[in-house]
Amino acid sequence: MPPNRALPALVLARAIAAALTTVAGVVALAPGGVVEVATYGPGEVVRGVAVRRSGATWLVAVHVVARYTTDLVLPDLAERIRSTTARVIAEHGGPPSAWIDVAIDDLTLPVEGSA
């Protein structure tokens, strides 16, 4: 599929955000710290996913809250997030390459004595 140059960042951010909530180990998207990580559009903000175009490629930053389990390995979780994001970009006709930053902002811990 040829790269879709008319693809709005907001549409892509929305799709990435929706897909990431289904990734095992991701509890929620996180809005970042001092500088908000978000994609802005008319009347809408997608927090936790920052998407912008740089030439022929997309620069994507996603911030998530992870769910801690004893078998959680962050590099593996990050890889799932990256591949999901890349798949969404490809499905939307994005370029084959994209720079994807993944940040684990926080961790939800199970209650004491469990997990």
């Binding site: 992870a66 590099p75 990050a78 930053d101």
Partner: peptide, 29 residues
């Protein structure tokens, strides 16, 4: 602020970071 973050992976696909506090929370837990 990146000093509050630990970079786990940095390659041509992007960067993977984790907030330092989350490691501390896990250690405390």
């Amino acid at each position: 602020p990146r000093e509050d973050w630990l970079t786990l992976v940095q390659d041509p696909l992007g960067r993977v970071t984790v907030r330092r506090d989350s490691i501390a929370r896990l250690a405390t837990r």
